[in-house]
């Protein structure tokens, strides 16, 4: 039975359709990637899974519980077993790295400070930032902030982690470190990971299964190898990063020649 079961998901923002009947299964213990061009609602999907947004129609079940039928306290109980890594890291800027990782432990457990210290150091050691524990979040690079956020996300030993664009804007070394960490932490802690990304190469490297989204629908899904061999032109354009194809290079509108011959239009 999958850990997350999404059925017939519909979600609109104003007049804009974000999801139009999406079905996704996230298998336990695997790394599942949700990929697609910018603006396809990948982050929105994570917010829907985390119960921060409500769908217009359809259901999202996490570990057998319908997220949007839970009471406030039941939802918060479920979230203790979910980790989320935001694109920005979302670290609390008024406390240092150590206190950021200790934050969920202090909020949700009654562990003595000495044990919290040991746990925090273990998590920071796992992401290679034990010696950066007294730095403030403002002193960290983007990649380091994401590693601290990862240590914080696993502090409560969750059953799953959702990664929101973990590789965006990273230099090759940080990118490699993050790819390696996500893979290693998923295996070591027997987690279920959902990676939302449009970095094809890095994501395909660690994902066991990939869903490709566009225009509010799942266009294709399968293992990375299956997708690379897909006959769909759209999938090939996305996976190989081709500038033109089914997704046109030019924004939709009147023809270029027509535009040049129409001096009345000052736009």
């Amino acid at each position: 039975m999958p850990l997350i079961k999404i059925r017939d998901l519909h979600f609109n923002r104003g007049d804009r359709v974000i999801f139009d009947g999406v079905n996704i299964d996230i298998q336990r213990g695997k790394v599942t990637a949700i990929m697609g061009p910018s603006g396809t609602g990948k982050t929105t999907l994570l917010k829907l899974i985390g119960g921060q947004l409500r769908p217009d129609k359809g259901t999202i079940e996490v570990d057998g519980q319908d997220v949007h039928k839970l009471s406030h306290s039941e939802l918060y109980e479920l979230r203790k077993r979910m980790g989320m890594l935001f694109q920005s890291g979302a670290l609390l800027t008024d406390i240092d790295v150590f206190d950021n990782v200790a934050f969920p432990l202090r909020e949700h457990t009654n562990l003595p400070e000495s044990m919290i210290r040991d746990l925090v150091l273990m998590k920071l050691q796992a992401v290679g930032l034990r010696n950066a524990r007294r730095l403030s979040p403002n002193e960290l690079s983007g990649g380091m902030a994401r590693r601290v956020a990862l240590a914080r996300a696993v502090a409560l030993e969750p059953m799953m982690i959702m990664y929101d664009e973990p590789f965006t804007g990273q230099d090759p070394i940080s990118m490699g470190t993050l790819v390696n960490l996500i893979h290693r932490i998923n295996d070591a802690m027997k987690l279920t990971s959902i990676v939302v990304s449009h970095d094809v190469a890095e994501t395909a490297e660690i994902a066991d299964y990939i869903y490709l989204m566009s225009g509010g629908k799942i266009i294709e899904h399968g293992s990375p190898v299956q997708l690379k061999d897909s006959g769909s032109q759209w999938v090939q354009q996305f996976m190989q990063g081709l500038p033109d194809g089914p997704v046109p290079f030019h924004y939709a509108g009147p023809d270029f020649a027509e535009d040049l011959l129409n001096p009345e239009d000052n736009a």
């Binding site: 203790k80 979302a90 934050f103």
Partner: peptide, 17 residues
């Protein structure tokens, strides 16, 4: 600023209201 840097959202996802 806490909202725009997703700190409030992050807190919600850590099950802290």
């Amino acid at each position: 600023l806490m909202k725009s840097t997703e700190q409030l959202s992050g807190m919600e996802m850590m099950a802290v209201d």
